[in-house]
Protein backbone atom coordinates (compact mmCIF):
# COMPACT_ATOMS: atom_id res chain seq x y z
CA UNK A 1 0.00 0.00 0.00
CA UNK A 2 2.79 2.41 -0.87
CA UNK A 3 0.86 4.55 -3.26
CA UNK A 4 -1.92 4.82 -0.73
CA UNK A 5 0.22 6.33 1.99
CA UNK A 6 1.95 8.62 -0.47
CA UNK A 7 -1.42 9.99 -1.43
CA UNK A 8 -2.36 10.49 2.19
CA UNK A 9 0.79 12.43 2.89
CA UNK A 10 0.38 14.92 0.09
CA UNK A 11 -2.98 16.05 1.39
CA UNK A 12 -2.35 19.64 2.36
CA UNK A 13 -0.35 20.48 -0.71
CA UNK A 14 0.38 23.97 -1.90
CA UNK A 15 1.52 22.52 -5.20
CA UNK A 16 -2.04 21.49 -5.95
CA UNK A 17 -2.27 24.10 -8.67
CA UNK A 18 -0.24 21.82 -10.91
CA UNK A 19 -3.02 19.30 -11.09
CA UNK A 20 -6.66 19.25 -11.98
CA UNK A 21 -6.65 20.31 -15.64
CA UNK A 22 -9.93 19.37 -17.27
CA UNK A 23 -10.28 19.26 -20.97
CA UNK A 24 -13.75 18.87 -22.40
CA UNK A 25 -13.57 18.40 -26.15
CA UNK A 26 -16.52 18.27 -28.53
CA UNK A 27 -18.72 16.53 -26.01
CA UNK A 28 -22.22 15.61 -27.10
CA UNK A 29 -24.82 13.94 -24.93
CA UNK A 30 -28.11 12.59 -26.20
CA UNK A 31 -30.64 11.19 -23.77
CA UNK A 32 -33.16 8.76 -25.16
CA UNK A 33 -35.21 7.57 -22.22
CA UNK A 34 -38.30 6.56 -24.18
CA UNK A 35 -37.32 6.65 -27.82
CA UNK A 36 -37.44 10.43 -27.96
CA UNK A 37 -33.95 11.82 -28.35
CA UNK A 38 -33.10 14.76 -26.15
CA UNK A 39 -29.96 16.51 -27.27
CA UNK A 40 -28.72 17.92 -23.97
CA UNK A 41 -25.15 18.90 -24.80
CA UNK A 42 -23.83 19.42 -28.31
CA UNK A 43 -20.24 19.74 -29.40
CA UNK A 44 -19.24 21.46 -26.21
CA UNK A 45 -15.58 22.28 -25.56
CA UNK A 46 -14.14 23.81 -22.41
CA UNK A 47 -10.54 23.88 -21.25
CA UNK A 48 -10.01 24.35 -17.54
CA UNK A 49 -6.54 25.11 -16.22
CA UNK A 50 -5.17 23.49 -13.07
CA UNK A 51 -6.34 25.38 -10.01
CA UNK A 52 -8.88 27.40 -11.92
CA UNK A 53 -12.26 28.34 -10.53
CA UNK A 54 -14.50 27.80 -13.51
CA UNK A 55 -18.08 28.96 -13.15
CA UNK A 56 -20.79 27.65 -15.43
CA UNK A 57 -23.97 29.66 -15.89
CA UNK A 58 -26.80 29.15 -18.32
CA UNK A 59 -30.55 28.85 -18.57
CA UNK A 60 -32.38 26.15 -16.67
CA UNK A 61 -32.40 22.80 -18.44
CA UNK A 62 -29.60 23.70 -20.80
CA UNK A 63 -27.39 20.76 -19.89
CA UNK A 64 -25.06 21.99 -17.15
CA UNK A 65 -25.73 19.12 -14.78
CA UNK A 66 -25.39 16.72 -17.68
CA UNK A 67 -21.87 17.97 -18.25
CA UNK A 68 -20.96 17.67 -14.58
CA UNK A 69 -22.39 14.17 -14.35
CA UNK A 70 -20.31 13.13 -17.31
CA UNK A 71 -17.13 14.36 -15.62
CA UNK A 72 -18.07 12.65 -12.36
CA UNK A 73 -18.87 9.38 -14.12
CA UNK A 74 -22.55 9.31 -13.19
CA UNK A 75 -23.54 8.86 -16.80
CA UNK A 76 -22.05 8.33 -20.21
CA UNK A 77 -21.40 10.74 -23.06
CA UNK A 78 -22.53 10.12 -26.62
CA UNK A 79 -19.41 11.45 -28.34
CA UNK A 80 -16.40 13.62 -27.65
CA UNK A 81 -13.82 13.22 -24.93
CA UNK A 82 -13.11 14.45 -21.42
CA UNK A 83 -9.58 14.37 -20.01
CA UNK A 84 -8.28 14.99 -16.53
CA UNK A 85 -4.60 15.93 -16.41
CA UNK A 86 -4.03 14.44 -19.84
CA UNK A 87 -5.65 11.13 -19.01
CA UNK A 88 -8.88 10.21 -20.69
CA UNK A 89 -11.84 9.96 -18.29
CA UNK A 90 -14.31 9.15 -20.99
CA UNK A 91 -14.20 9.29 -24.74
CA UNK A 92 -14.15 7.05 -27.78
CA UNK A 93 -14.55 3.43 -26.71
CA UNK A 94 -15.19 4.35 -23.07
CA UNK A 95 -18.38 6.40 -22.83
CA UNK A 96 -18.64 6.24 -19.03
CA UNK A 97 -15.93 7.65 -16.76
CA UNK A 98 -14.98 5.65 -13.67
CA UNK A 99 -16.13 7.31 -10.48
CA UNK A 100 -13.26 8.26 -8.26
CA UNK A 101 -12.20 10.41 -5.37
CA UNK A 102 -10.07 12.62 -7.61
CA UNK A 103 -13.29 14.34 -8.69
CA UNK A 104 -15.61 14.81 -5.73
CA UNK A 105 -19.09 16.18 -6.21
CA UNK A 106 -20.97 18.47 -3.86
CA UNK A 107 -24.62 18.02 -4.62
CA UNK A 108 -27.38 20.55 -5.15
CA UNK A 109 -29.51 19.21 -2.33
CA UNK A 110 -26.65 18.00 -0.20
CA UNK A 111 -25.76 14.36 0.12
CA UNK A 112 -24.09 13.97 3.47
CA UNK A 113 -25.11 10.55 4.74
CA UNK A 114 -27.83 11.39 7.26
CA UNK A 115 -27.01 8.26 9.27
CA UNK A 116 -23.41 9.30 9.94
CA UNK A 117 -22.19 12.14 12.10
CA UNK A 118 -20.39 14.97 10.34
CA UNK A 119 -17.04 13.56 11.47
CA UNK A 120 -17.94 10.06 10.27
CA UNK A 121 -19.08 11.52 6.96
CA UNK A 122 -15.81 13.33 6.48
CA UNK A 123 -13.73 10.34 7.53
CA UNK A 124 -15.62 8.05 5.15
CA UNK A 125 -13.63 8.66 1.95
CA UNK A 126 -10.11 7.92 3.25
CA UNK A 127 -11.40 4.89 5.17
CA UNK A 128 -13.06 3.17 2.22
CA UNK A 129 -10.20 4.02 -0.10
CA UNK A 130 -7.83 2.54 2.43
CA UNK A 131 -5.58 5.60 2.44
CA UNK A 132 -5.88 6.10 6.20
CA UNK A 133 -6.71 3.95 9.19
CA UNK A 134 -10.01 4.63 10.90
CA UNK A 135 -8.33 6.49 13.73
CA UNK A 136 -6.21 8.62 11.40
CA UNK A 137 -9.16 9.46 9.19
CA UNK A 138 -11.31 10.33 12.15
CA UNK A 139 -8.64 12.52 13.69
CA UNK A 140 -8.05 14.30 10.42
CA UNK A 141 -11.78 14.74 9.91
CA UNK A 142 -12.17 16.39 13.29
CA UNK A 143 -9.22 18.68 12.58
CA UNK A 144 -10.51 19.67 9.16
CA UNK A 145 -13.99 20.32 10.49
CA UNK A 146 -12.49 22.52 13.16
CA UNK A 147 -10.57 24.42 10.48
CA UNK A 148 -13.87 25.04 8.73
CA UNK A 149 -15.36 26.38 11.96
CA UNK A 150 -17.37 23.24 12.62
CA UNK A 151 -15.59 21.82 15.65
CA UNK A 152 -18.64 22.14 17.88
CA UNK A 153 -20.80 20.02 15.64
CA UNK A 154 -18.41 17.28 14.51
CA UNK A 155 -20.33 14.69 16.54
CA UNK A 156 -23.74 15.78 15.31
CA UNK A 157 -25.82 14.24 12.54
CA UNK A 158 -26.49 16.25 9.36
CA UNK A 159 -30.16 16.54 10.30
CA UNK A 160 -29.21 18.35 13.48
CA UNK A 161 -27.22 21.19 11.92
CA UNK A 162 -28.21 24.07 9.66
CA UNK A 163 -28.07 23.66 5.90
CA UNK A 164 -25.13 26.05 5.75
CA UNK A 165 -23.12 23.96 8.18
CA UNK A 166 -24.06 20.79 6.34
CA UNK A 167 -22.89 22.21 3.03
CA UNK A 168 -19.60 23.33 4.55
CA UNK A 169 -19.12 19.88 6.04
CA UNK A 170 -19.83 18.36 2.64
CA UNK A 171 -17.06 20.43 1.11
CA UNK A 172 -14.75 19.26 3.89
CA UNK A 173 -15.79 15.69 3.12
CA UNK A 174 -14.68 16.28 -0.46
CA UNK A 175 -11.42 18.02 0.42
CA UNK A 176 -10.15 15.37 2.81
CA UNK A 177 -9.61 13.15 -0.25
CA UNK A 178 -7.29 15.75 -1.71
CA UNK A 179 -9.23 15.73 -4.98
CA UNK A 180 -7.93 17.17 -8.20
CA UNK A 181 -11.27 18.76 -8.94
CA UNK A 182 -14.21 19.86 -6.87
CA UNK A 183 -17.47 19.59 -8.79
CA UNK A 184 -20.25 21.72 -7.37
CA UNK A 185 -23.77 21.70 -8.76
CA UNK A 186 -25.60 24.76 -7.48
CA UNK A 187 -24.57 23.99 -3.94
CA UNK A 188 -25.98 27.19 -2.48
CA UNK A 189 -29.17 27.38 -4.46
CA UNK A 190 -31.73 27.15 -1.71
CA UNK A 191 -29.91 29.41 0.74
CA UNK A 192 -30.77 32.87 1.93
CA UNK A 193 -28.48 35.74 0.99
CA UNK A 194 -26.75 35.93 4.35
CA UNK A 195 -25.95 32.23 4.57
CA UNK A 196 -24.83 32.35 0.98
CA UNK A 197 -22.35 35.11 1.65
CA UNK A 198 -20.89 33.10 4.55
CA UNK A 199 -20.65 30.10 2.23
CA UNK A 200 -18.82 32.20 -0.37
CA UNK A 201 -16.26 33.44 2.09
CA UNK A 202 -15.69 29.97 3.39
CA UNK A 203 -15.27 28.53 -0.10
CA UNK A 204 -12.86 31.31 -1.09
CA UNK A 205 -10.88 30.65 2.06
CA UNK A 206 -10.71 26.95 1.20
CA UNK A 207 -9.69 27.75 -2.34
CA UNK A 208 -6.94 30.15 -1.33
CA UNK A 209 -5.56 27.44 0.93
CA UNK A 210 -5.80 24.46 -1.44
CA UNK A 211 -5.92 25.91 -4.95
CA UNK A 212 -8.04 22.97 -6.01
CA UNK A 213 -9.66 23.17 -9.43
CA UNK A 214 -13.30 24.09 -9.06
CA UNK A 215 -16.08 23.40 -11.54
CA UNK A 216 -19.04 25.30 -10.18
CA UNK A 217 -22.53 25.43 -11.67
CA UNK A 218 -24.78 28.29 -10.65
CA UNK A 219 -27.70 30.45 -11.70
CA UNK A 220 -26.45 33.39 -9.71
CA UNK A 221 -24.35 35.73 -11.86
CA UNK A 222 -22.97 37.74 -9.00
CA UNK A 223 -21.93 34.55 -7.29
CA UNK A 224 -20.25 33.42 -10.49
CA UNK A 225 -18.22 36.58 -10.88
CA UNK A 226 -17.43 36.93 -7.20
CA UNK A 227 -15.99 33.42 -6.96
CA UNK A 228 -14.71 32.63 -10.43
CA UNK A 229 -11.60 33.08 -12.50
CA UNK A 230 -13.72 32.58 -15.58
CA UNK A 231 -17.44 32.54 -16.13
CA UNK A 232 -18.68 30.38 -18.95
CA UNK A 233 -22.11 31.30 -20.22
CA UNK A 234 -23.84 28.36 -21.88
CA UNK A 235 -26.38 28.56 -24.64
CA UNK A 236 -29.86 27.22 -24.22
CA UNK A 237 -30.24 23.49 -24.90
CA UNK A 238 -28.26 21.91 -26.47
CA UNK A 239 -25.51 23.41 -24.33
CA UNK A 240 -22.54 25.00 -26.00
CA UNK A 241 -20.33 27.82 -24.78
CA UNK A 242 -21.82 31.16 -25.74
CA UNK A 243 -19.50 33.57 -24.00
CA UNK A 244 -16.52 33.34 -21.75
CA UNK A 245 -15.94 36.14 -19.28
CA UNK A 246 -12.50 36.45 -17.72
CA UNK A 247 -12.65 37.73 -14.19
CA UNK A 248 -9.32 39.39 -13.65
CA UNK A 249 -9.92 40.41 -10.08
CA UNK A 250 -7.16 39.73 -7.62
CA UNK A 251 -7.39 37.19 -4.85
CA UNK A 252 -7.90 37.00 -1.97
CA UNK A 253 -11.29 38.55 -2.53
CA UNK A 254 -13.72 39.75 0.06
CA UNK A 255 -17.09 41.40 0.32
CA UNK A 256 -15.98 44.91 -0.45
CA UNK A 257 -15.59 43.69 -3.99
CA UNK A 258 -19.33 43.43 -4.43
CA UNK A 259 -19.77 47.20 -4.35
CA UNK A 260 -16.80 48.01 -6.57
CA UNK A 261 -17.16 49.51 -10.04
CA UNK A 262 -15.07 46.78 -11.64
CA UNK A 263 -17.46 44.14 -10.34
CA UNK A 264 -20.56 46.03 -11.50
CA UNK A 265 -19.21 46.37 -15.00
CA UNK A 266 -18.46 42.67 -15.26
CA UNK A 267 -21.92 41.74 -14.02
CA UNK A 268 -23.56 44.04 -16.56
CA UNK A 269 -21.42 42.66 -19.34
CA UNK A 270 -22.37 39.08 -18.53
CA UNK A 271 -25.98 39.77 -17.77
CA UNK A 272 -26.74 40.64 -21.38
CA UNK A 273 -25.55 37.29 -22.67
CA UNK A 274 -27.33 35.30 -19.98
CA UNK A 275 -30.54 37.18 -20.45
CA UNK A 276 -30.52 36.60 -24.17
CA UNK A 277 -30.21 32.84 -23.67
CA UNK A 278 -32.82 32.79 -20.95
CA UNK A 279 -35.29 34.44 -23.29
CA UNK A 280 -34.44 31.92 -26.00
CA UNK A 281 -34.92 29.05 -23.58
CA UNK A 282 -38.24 30.47 -22.50
CA UNK A 283 -39.46 30.88 -26.06
CA UNK A 284 -38.27 27.39 -26.97
CA UNK A 285 -40.22 26.09 -24.00
CA UNK A 286 -43.33 27.93 -25.21
CA UNK A 287 -42.93 26.45 -28.65
CA UNK A 288 -42.58 22.95 -27.24
CA UNK A 289 -45.74 23.40 -25.23
CA UNK A 290 -47.70 24.86 -28.15
Amino acid sequence: MNTASAQANSTSSADAATKGAISIRNVTKIYDPDGVNVLAVEDCSIEIAPGEVCMIVGPSGCGKTTLLNAIAGFHSITSGQIDLDGEMLCGPGKPLADQGADRVVVFQNGALFPWKTLADNVAYGPIVQGTMTKAEAYGKAVDMLAEAGLSGVAGKYPGEVSSGMARRAEIVRALINDPKVLLLDEPYRAMDALTKSIMHESLLEVYDRTKVTIFFITHDLEEAIFLGDRVIVMTTRPARTKKIVDVKIERPRDYRLLSSEEFRVLVEETKGAVHEEAVKAFEAGERELA
Binding site: G100, V104, V105, F107, A111, F113, W115, G125, V128
Partner: peptide
Amino acid sequence: SYFRAAGCLGSKRRHVFIHVVLP
Protein backbone atom coordinates in the same frame (compact mmCIF):
# COMPACT_ATOMS: atom_id res chain seq x y z
CA SER B 1 -27.48 11.01 -4.62
CA TYR B 2 -26.23 8.94 -1.66
CA PHE B 3 -25.11 6.22 -4.05
CA ARG B 4 -23.43 8.82 -6.21
CA ALA B 5 -21.76 10.44 -3.23
CA ALA B 6 -20.50 7.06 -2.06
CA GLY B 7 -19.23 6.39 -5.57
CA CYS B 8 -17.27 9.57 -5.92
CA LEU B 9 -15.74 9.13 -2.47
CA GLY B 10 -14.11 5.95 -3.72
CA SER B 11 -16.43 3.24 -2.36
CA LYS B 12 -16.33 -0.31 -3.58
CA ARG B 13 -19.53 -2.25 -3.95
CA ARG B 14 -19.34 -3.76 -0.48
CA HIS B 15 -18.86 -0.34 1.10
CA VAL B 16 -21.95 0.90 -0.67
CA PHE B 17 -23.84 -2.05 0.76
CA ILE B 18 -22.66 -1.54 4.33
CA HIS B 19 -22.65 2.25 4.46
CA VAL B 20 -25.55 3.21 2.19
CA VAL B 21 -27.91 0.32 1.49
CA LEU B 22 -28.04 -0.98 5.04
CA PRO B 23 -28.49 2.21 7.05
